[in-house]
Design a protein around this nucleic acid. Sequence first.
DNA 1: ACATAGACCTGTTGGC
DNA 2: TGCCAACAGGTCTATG
Length: 293
Amino acid sequence: MPELPEVETVKRGLAPALEGASVRALHLHREGLRFPFPPNLALLAAGRRIISVARRAKYLLIELEGGQTLISHLGMSGSWRVEEVRPNAPLPPKLKHDHAVLLLERSAAAEQNGQNFRVSYNDPRRFGFLLAAETAALSSHPLLVNLGIEPLGNALSGAFLQAAFKGKKAPLKTALLNQNIIAGLGNIYVCEALWRARLSPVRAAGSLAASGQKAAAAAADLAQSIRSVLEDALASGGSHLRNYTQTDGSLGYFQHSFQVYGRAGEACRRCGELIENKTIGGRSSFYCGACQK
DNA sequence: ACATAGACCTGTTGGC
DNA sequence: TGCCAACAGGTCTATG
């Protein structure tokens, strides 16, 4: 599920619920996920007000009053679920694979009934994680310090890609998945962006940095394709995940817009040739060998 | 410096 | 219908 558009959608779902609320308790139902939970995690969150929910790359950053920020990564199968907890009503059932549960209280000013709510982190495969870090030192945290640019920010351009890819022999596909260059792209959107840009995933990344107008145009095209595919996914993800309490945001919304991902053996929607699936850098890569050069 | 394979996990899917 | 292998949106580590 979670590449940048999905994580951004989660962020947009969580922020209005969490911001300004206070953590009554954080319950952890196992020792850890991909990484062990920090020993003081529950204690550190308890009683703290949540200042903000933000996203950097595929990380969710939940800033707490008191100088700590929770770092959440969804791995391959993580999701957050918001549920109301009404007085005199049974608690919604805990689901299998709910590993971390926040019990929260809305600020008195915002909520006359004193309603509480529960936000659960569910992750069957447990490739995700939940950590905490000093807010002041967040940008130098080992997980974040080397991250590349945000592809939806102003930094992404043809010139940026040319500079970043110059001399790289790695396949374009691999370079785009490198979170230290562009942060937030994953397997699906790289495949889709390359199709939009008519660029082959197997060509050397450095070929986009060749001198001349042709390479510059291809790099600019790719930058624009990355931006547009992420924006389109975000637009459609937002509409489907709006009801946050009922869906876990797993596969099912933008997939109908896929042009190549998961379509091996089907006709290219642009030229009619068959979509190929080849492993590049250890990941399934879908592309049209006829019109992606 | 780079590419590749393997590791971590459970759930779903497709072939027989 | 059942069984089993292959595969899945991510990323870190070890190996060559």
